[in-house]
Design a protein around this nucleic acid. Structure first.
Length: 218
DNA sequence: ATCCCGAGGG
DNA sequence: CCCTCTGGAT
């Protein structure tokens, strides 16, 4: 109902962007396969610098061997590295998985914590991983800022801060809590399908009218 | 700021 | 060959 020929305000522009994202990615959700919070924790740690598809190829055999923190805590480093090879960064990830599993057993009675402070206290779990677990495993309001969310939201002018934590604050401030998780997945879907890191497909993008970073001819 | 690090795409 | 993929620790 924009009957006047005036520029949209910032609030109107961002609202329109979020609306179009919701319209184009109505069911965006994590592609990682998991049955329990612990399995999700493992999958998210493995997903660093790797595609979800690659993680899903590895986790079935891994979970068949160890699907609980108690079981994974006892795996020998060599065996675990073999199980997760193909994921990249496997030495770090192997160490994180064993150490985090031990801490979950010893300090949290074998249960993945459902709060941010305890989650980020686990080795290999940073802000992004903790927020992914809070939303996807426990249904808590959380907006994880990963490489896609960071890049896409800044290009669209939804956030301006340079630090990840600032971007997270700006995005959550613009949205009701129930939208935090869904928006995270929609921004990722958009980053993967059109708003690539290298050559964004601006001419094919349904948001290009509202995008301050639109590149002509792309 | 740098390191880790395999798989897949262009 | 180069780059990127839902990072975290030092």
């Amino acid at each position: 109902m924009v009957t006047e020929n005036r520029d949209l305000t910032e609030v109107e522009r961002t609202a329109e962007i979020f609306r179009l994202l919701r319209e184009h990615y109505p069911r965006a959700r994590t592609a990682l396969k998991f049955d329990t919070p612990f399995q999700l924790l493992v999958a998210v740690i493995l997903s660093a610098q790797t595609t979800d598809e690659q993680v899903n190829r590895i986790t079935p055999a891994l979970f068949a061997r160890a699907s609980s923190p108690a079981e994974m805590a006892q795996l020998k480093p060599a065996e675990l590295e073999r199980l997760i090879k193909g994921c990249g960064l496997y030495r770090n990830k192997s160490r994180f998985l064993v150490e985090a599993s031990r801490r979950i057993v010893q300090q949290f009675n074998g249960r993945v914590p459902d709060n941010f402070v305890d989650l980020v206290s686990l080795p290999g779990v940073g802000r992004k991983t903790a927020n992914v677990i809070l939303y996807n495993a426990f249904g808590r309001p959380a907006l994880a800022v990963d490489t896609h969310v960071y890049r896409v939201s800044r290009r669209l002018g939804l956030a301006r801060g340079k630090r990840v934590e600032e971007v997270e604050r700006e995005l959550t401030a613009r949205l009701p809590e129930r939208e935090w998780g869904p928006v995270h997945h929609r921004l990722i879907a958009h980053g993967r399908s059109l708003c690539h890191a290298r050559r964004p497909e601006c001419s094919a993008c349904f948001l290009n009218r509202y995008c301050p970073s639109k590149i002509e001819g792309e």
